[in-house]
């Protein structure tokens, strides 16, 4: 029974990682950059929803929508101000800028909301009791898994069926060729950031609900882990990000339960290293046969 409850906790945490990883992977896939500030957008989403619920007394669903709207704008602004001018710069310059944006957001949050952790009450209270109370599953865990599945299915459909989604894939492969097709590459990249940041807001709400606390550094470790999950699953791949996030969550939860709380992160990253040694492109990374 204990095992089952750890597994469920792992799946739920993994679903949060998966949602964050989907944002990472989309931005990487299309803009070919690692947006290390992605984790901090999550934190901002957490604070916005926190303020909306606790200070403005808004219902949770409105708080989530508000957080999504603010993060979408934030994501597009970050992209426009910090990354767009570096479109043709070496990727290292972009990477360093992203790290700078990450610290900027953390420090700004510290100024606005102070460094002290806030108690974040889950957006959905209560839990499901099963097997005569031997197994309890918080509703928010169930919600997290459902939301994650819906997002993944939605993104898969969007990129495979919609005109804009296909244009994103075209940009991801060849920006110049995409422009020759009449695709506005800059606008497409902005849209990608908008979608990724809206997902980050959802992830922020779910993550804070899961942890029960919120502080300016809340997003940074999950951000790195979700990035790991995205690489683990095969960066650029939507099902890969989902699988990677889920596995990382389960490994972490199991390691905490049966090995050591302190070693949980070490074990997660160790598994990543082994996977990458065997499959350098990640679990679902694409090897496309190309004839020239």
């Amino acid at each position: 029974m204990e095992f089952l409850s750890y597994l469920i906790s792992g799946i739920s945490l993994g679903s949060v990682y998966a949602i964050i990883a989907l944002g990472y992977t989309m931005v990487y896939g299309i803009a070919k950059m690692l947006n290390f500030a992605h984790g901090d957008v999550i934190m901002v989403g957490g604070y916005i929803s926190f303020c909306a619920m606790n200070y403005l007394g808004l219902p949770s669903i409105v708080a989530v929508l508000l957080a999504m709207a603010v993060c979408t704008v934030l994501g597009v602004v970050i992209e426009g101000l910090a990354y767009k001018p570096l479109r043709s710069a070496p990727s290292l310059a972009v990477l360093i800028t992203a790290i700078g944006v990450s610290y900027f957001l953390q420090n700004a949050a510290q100024l606005i909301w102070s460094a002290a952790p806030k108690v974040y009450s889950p957006v959905v209270a209560g839990s499901l009791s099963l097997l005569n109370g031997q197994l309890t599953i918080p509703y928010v865990s169930l919600l997290t898994v459902v939301v994650c599945l819906v997002i993944m299915a939605g993104l898969t459909l969007f990129t495979s069926q919609s005109k804009l989604g296909k244009a994103m894939r075209a940009c991801s492969e060849d920006k110049n060729a995409a422009q020759l097709m009449g695709i506005n590459v800059n606008a497409t990249i902005s849209t990608t950031f908008a979608i990724g940041s809206a997902l980050a807001a959802i992830a922020g709400v779910l993550l804070c609900s899961f942890n029960g606390t919120l502080m300016p550094t809340t997003g940074s470790m999950p951000g790195i882990k979700a990035f790991t999950a995205a690489v683990f699953g095969g960066i650029g791949s939507i099902p890969g990000a989902f699988l990677g996030g889920l596995l990382l969550g389960i490994i972490e939860s199991m390691a905490k339960a049966y090995i050591s709380t302190n070693l949980a992160n070490t074990i997660g990253f160790a598994v990543l290293i082994v996977v990458l040694l065997v499959r350098p492109a990640g679990l679902l990374g694409k090897y496309v046969p190309e004839k020239v």
Partner: peptide, 24 residues
């Protein structure tokens, strides 16, 4: 005129090296 606005003017290019979208 930015590159992405050229094609709608009636001018299409088949680029060197084909540059098709290989994964689509």
């Amino acid at each position: 005129v930015p590159a992405f606005k050229i094609v709608s003017r009636g001018l299409a290019q088949v680029p060197e090296g084909r540059r098709i979208f290989l994964q689509m």
